[in-house]
């Protein structure tokens, strides 16, 4: 019965979406017919690549990154704070529940040895992803998730690896405070929080786009260490604070 209702609901939603998309007088334009001239995105593209400007406004080759970290930098800081609060919640609950994840069998030899090679590749490519966040797709959040996933792999595939890496607690706090400090330096030099006080440089170089790469590296470090801390809380099951 439940399944039939689910199928009926799915069909109803699908019909609604399709009729709205394909009827002639709907608000949604057909693919490729929407004019981008009247939207706000053109303005942001121009700010970055317009050759008439003396200096590009953000200098970031990836426009999405320039919006996420430069124009909406304060918002990104809020997102990182949300992650921090959830990590704190997991740590507190982990102390109350004291229930560990237990496996019936030890991890096998193949995954145990394979992990010791693969984790290195995952970690360095995760760091590559967030250092190059202003040049390539990606950035702080995917890179941090990759670092967290590398530590999840270590917890899963090595039953000796139960020691929490103490450096992460330090790293998390350090990255969070450095984001604030970068914002405050902007406040004191330019007049508002997270002001871009570094030179923009040339688009496409690694050292360009002002404070965007700095902030993204910090965000990546913070996300990675937080995810690793959450996983550590789940696997070790107790907190000492």
């Amino acid at each position: 019965m439940k399944k039939i209702i689910a199928i009926l609901l799915t069909v109803a939603v699908a019909l609604f979406v399709f009729t709205n998309l394909y009827s002639g007088d709907s608000d949604f334009k057909a693919f490729g017919e929407k004019s981008l001239e009247e939207t706000v995105s053109k303005e942001f593209v121009n700010k970055t690549v317009d050759p008439q400007r003396v200096q590009p406004e953000t200098g970031s080759a990836n426009i999405v990154t320039s919006i996420v970290v430069n124009y909406r930098g304060f918002d990104t800081m809020g997102e990182v704070t949300v992650l921090f609060v959830s990590a704190l919640g997991v740590a507190l609950l982990g102390g109350v529940l004291r229930k560990k994840v237990t496996f019936r069998y030890k991890p096998g030899f193949i995954i145990n040895q394979g992990m010791k090679i693969i984790v290195g590749i995952i970690l360095i490519s995760g760091i590559y992803i967030f250092v190059h966040g202003h040049l390539t797709p990606g950035g702080g959040f995917p890179g941090g998730a990759m670092i967290g996933s590398a530590f999840l792999l270590m917890y899963l595939s090595d039953d000796k690896f139960r020691t929490r890496i103490a450096a992460f607690k330090v790293l998390e706090g350090l990255a969070g405070s450095l984001i604030m400090i970068v914002g405050l330096v902007g406040l004191s030099t330019g007049g508002y929080f997270l002001y871009n006080f570094l030179p923009n440089g040339e688009i496409g170089q690694l050292l360009s786009a002002g404070i965007v790469p700095v902030l993204y590296v910090l965000v990546g470090l913070k996300v990675g260490s937080e995810v690793s801390n959450i996983l550590g809380d789940f696997f070790i099951g107790e907190v000492e604070e």
Partner: peptide
């Protein structure tokens, strides 16, 4: 290999790999 062999990339890569190998090298089998 990931970032291409430009001067800035190679130098920053050296710093990053130094820090990273200092943290995790004892867990790996390189």
């Amino acid at each position: 290999v990931l970032s291409g062999f430009r001067m800035q990339d190679v130098l920053i890569g050296a710093v990053v790999s130094l820090v990273l190998s200092f943290v995790v090298s004892r867990y790996l089998s390189f």
